[in-house]
Each structure stands twice: as structure tokens, then as C-alpha cells.
């Protein structure tokens, strides 16, 4: 049974400006080391970072955890299956919340162009 759905859109050029900003620590505050290692070598890393940012927000929405609790960027990790499909690993508070909600699987779909990146997440029991 579907327990929640979330969608998010991220402007790629806004992400690019953040990647180029002098506050180098910010990327590490939002993305996990494996995500940075995956996105950074890409020809247009801003698209991949933007897609992962959208995915993090979509997952939080699918878990109905978006309101009033702050942000959970470091608690949603976007990884890839051996077949190359993006999928989700939860950490910390969100992992506990998902367990409380009975969420056993989160389906994720990403897309990106030079201008925008989008993600849809579906939480299932």
C-alpha cells in the first residue's frame, strides 16, 4: 500500500551558484560523502547535485515530515543500485520516522536537464 508521495523541483543554475560559492563547507552540510563522490566528477555536476537535492526533499515530503522540524538533508542518502537505479537510504530521525510509519520501501525517480532537476518519491509499506 502506498503510504505517501512526494515531488520536488530544483533549479540547476541556483545549485551551480552554490557549488561555486566560497562556502565550501555547505556542500558537505547538505550531501553525504558518497553523493559528493558520485556527483563531483560528472561533466555537469550541478545537474546531479540538483537531482539529489530534489530527491531528498521529495523523500521528506513522501514521509510527511516536511513541516516544522527543520531540514533532513543529511538523513536522506541517494545511492544507486548495482543496476544504476537511484534509491534511498535513510539515517537518523528519518529512519526512525519511516519505521514508525510502517514504510518498508521508498521508490524514487529522478530527471534533470541543464535548467531543472526533479524527483518523485513514493513510500510503500
Amino acid at each position: 500500500m502506498i503510504l505517501g508521495i512526494g515531488i520536488d523541483l530544483c533549479d540547476v543554475q541556483r545549485m551551480r551558484r552554490q557549488l561555486e560559492a566560497p562556502a565550501a563547507g555547505l556542500v558537505a552540510a547538505v550531501f553525504l560523502p558518497a553523493e559528493i563522490a558520485y556527483c563531483s566528477p560528472k561533466r555537469r555536476p550541478e545537474e546531479h547535485f540538483a537531482a539529489r537535492f530534489a530527491a531528498k526533499e521529495a523523500v521528506v515530503k513522501a514521509l510527511a515530515a516536511a513541516g516544522g522540524e527543520g531540514v533532513f538533508w543529511q538523513e536522506v542518502e541517494i545511492v544507486r543500485t548495482p543496476g544504476g537505479q537511484p534509491t534511498v537510504v535513510l539515517h537518523g530521525r528519518l529512519r526512525a520516522l519511516a519505521a514508525d510509519l510502517g514504510v518498508r520501501r521508498i521508490h524514487l525517480s529522478l530527471t534533470h536537464t541543464a535548467g531543472a532537476a526533479a524527483a518523485v518519491a513514493v513510500a510503500e509499506d
Partner: peptide, 14 residues
């Protein structure tokens, strides 16, 4: 929006 939060944090740090 959520990207704006990230931009705001970058502004504070810089």
C-alpha cells in the same frame, strides 16, 4: 523555498 534555505546558510557562512 528549500533551495533558498541552502542559499541562506551559504550567505551566513560567507
Amino acid at each position: 523555498d528549500s533551495v533558498g534555505v541552502m542559499e541562506l546558510v551559504a550567505f551566513l557562512e560567507q
